[in-house]
């Protein structure tokens, strides 16, 4: 008796975001599906999003994790814009920011300095990413 049918408690919410003029979303789809199967709630942005849209979605959806997939090489302009936007709306501190894609090593250091928690390059395994999210999803008051 009294067993609640609905799930209670915290569910990890992730936004999988594609920014800029990069039309390759196979990876984003694969990750969305893997996250779903890991029990996360995944909001997929769709292709060709502007940084302000990603900010809007991150703030409104109150996601724990923002995963940005970017293969166009424009990460060094787009990601700082997103982070500035998140700061403006008080959403930077408690959002785990991940970047997936092809990022040169020297750029990776820059992104980490900006506040990206981890960069996943080609060959990163799904299990590794899911594990990282589970361990690092921010605690919230």
């Amino acid at each position: 008796m009294g067993v609640d049918q609905e799930q209670a408690g915290r569910t990890i919410r992730c936004l999988v975001a594609k920014v800029g003029l990069d039309g390759h979303d196979r990876g984003a789809h694969v990750i969305s599906r893997a996250f779903r199967d890991a029990g996360f709630e995944v909001i997929y942005s769709g292709l060709h999003r502007a940084p302000e849209e990603i900010v809007q979605a991150t703030v409104q959806e109150d996601v724990d994790v923002l995963g940005i997939s970017i293969l166009s090489g424009a990460h060094d302009t787009l990601i700082p814009e997103i982070i500035d936007g998140l700061e403006e709306y008080d959403a930077f501190e408690d959002t785990l920011i991940l970047v997936g894609g092809i990022i040169p090593d020297e750029d990776e250091d820059e992104l980490l300095e900006l506040g990206v928690s981890k960069v996943f390059g080609p060959g990163a395994s799904m299990d590794e990413m899911i594990q990282f999210v589970r361990e690092n999803a921010p605690e919230r008051e």
Binding site: Q7, T11, S32, R33, F35, R36, D37, A38, G39, F40, E41, V42, I43, Y44, S45, G46, A50, E52, E53, V55, Q56, A57, V59, Q60, E61
Partner: peptide
């Protein structure tokens, strides 16, 4: 698994960056 892919936001193309549309 309890997981979900929430894809309705993709269609919100007419309200880009408009914070006065709060979409959840």
């Amino acid at each position: 698994t309890g997981g979900a892919v929430l894809g309705d936001r993709i269609r919100m193309g007419s309200n880009i960056g408009d914070m006065d549309v709060f979409f959840r």
